[in-house]
């Protein structure tokens, strides 16, 4: 197998640079491309078609034109509400989760006896995922007689709010759960920090740079592609947040935690309106796409690539080139 592959890869040499790049590029992305076309692109467009249909899954879809979209924007109160809740959720929880993940990753990026233990401890909540156990657990922490209130009382703040079912605080419980499970971006930061060559730090310390300066001049710029990746991924994940809200509050109280994806799910499977759900999904995709585009557009100002993915399009400057020399 190895032989065959290296032959194919080697064969590229006789060709022009462009042709070789095409051949090699498609050779490496080939396996993905096939599956992607079949199992993602086709269902992808199927959902677009369904979004123009009245489809209850139990009988054949009927074409209804823009009906679903019109209904969403004109009649559906919860649609707007859930969208606003989701935006609030994303704009509060994602920055916090990322900053948190970065801080912890920095702390845990040391060689010390305790570090492996702490890593496990900080990562454990993320392993738990969205299981039923988490929902029970979280509801008990933030219940009226829960651990959180016990703690507040202990430090002298008397409090008897039932956080999980208070109409103003319920969303915060979900935000907090989302932040609590910051393990994934943390690990990616950690891997990113490992990739920064020690030589840079050595050079900086010879130059007499302090910790703060080193962080802003070396760590942050070198970590910026990773930060960018985390931001994009977390944003996508944040807009699609679903299980946390479903298992803990199921959208309540008073629909104040009815995040978009949860509402979509209820429409599609709870009320047998898959066509409507697909329309919601496409609107969501456009919204996420818009914000992702914004992040991508802004990236030239703050992301520094050694060799960036879109190299050759000549859009991004090699800002770090000078320092390396």
């Amino acid at each position: 197998m190895g032989n065959r592959s290296s032959n194919t890869a080697g064969n590229g040499r006789g060709l022009s640079k462009n042709a070789r790049n095409n051949l090699l590029g498609y050779f490496f992305i080939g396996p993905w491309l096939i599956m992607f076309l079949a199992f993602t692109v086709v269902p992808f467009f199927a959902s677009l078609v369904l979004s123009f249909c009245d489809y209850n899954m139990l009988s054949a879809p009927t074409f209804v034109g823009w009906d679903n979209y019109v209904k969403l924007f004109t009649e559906d109160r919860l649609f707007t509400k859930s969208l606003l809740i989701t935006l609030k959720f994303v704009f509060i929880s994602i920055p916090l989760r990322l900053i948190f993940a970065l801080i912890v990753a920095m702390i845990l990026n040391r060689d010390s006896k305790m570090v492996p233990i702490y890593r496990v401890v900080y990562y454990l909540p993320s392993i738990l995922g969205g299981s039923v156990a988490v929902s029970v657990l979280w509801r008990y922490v933030f219940a009226k007689e829960g651990v959180f209130n016990q703690f507040l009382n202990l430090i002298g703040i008397p409090c008897n709010i039932s956080w999980i079912s208070n109409k103003d605080t319920a969303l915060w419980c979900i935000i907090l759960l989302f932040i609590w499970q910051f393990g994934s971006p943390m690990l990616i930061f950690l891997a990113g920090l490992k990739q920064i060559p020690k030589t840079y730090y050595e050079a900086a310390s010879i130059d007499g740079a302090g910790k703060v300066v080193t962080f802003f001049r070396i760590t942050l710029p070198l970590l910026s592609p990773i930060f960018f990746f985390n931001l994009v991924m977390q944003m996508i994940g944040g807009f699609m947040v679903f299980s946390q809200a479903m298992i803990i509050t199921d959208g309540g109280p008073l629909n104040n935690t009815m995040v978009y994806a949860l509402y979509l799910y209820k429409q599609a499977f709870g009320y047998y309106k898959m066509g409507y759900g697909c329309a919601m999904a496409w609107i969501l995709m456009i919204i996420i796409g818009f914000f992702t585009l914004l992040v991508f557009k802004s990236s030239s100002a703050w992301v520094f690539y050694e060799n960036q993915i879109s190299e050759g399009n000549g859009k991004k400057k090699r800002k770090r080139g000078g320092k390396k020399a």
């Binding site: 197998m1 190895g2 592959s5 080939g30 396996p31 491309l33 096939i34 076309l37 079949a38 086709v42």
Partner: peptide, 20 residues
């Protein structure tokens, strides 16, 4: 539609890759 797309997919992967 899927069968069509899939047939296309299979032809495309005729060249094969090591992972497959």
């Amino acid at each position: 539609a899927m069968a069509g797309a899939m047939a296309a997919g299979l032809t495309a992967c005729g060249s094969g890759s090591s992972t497959q």
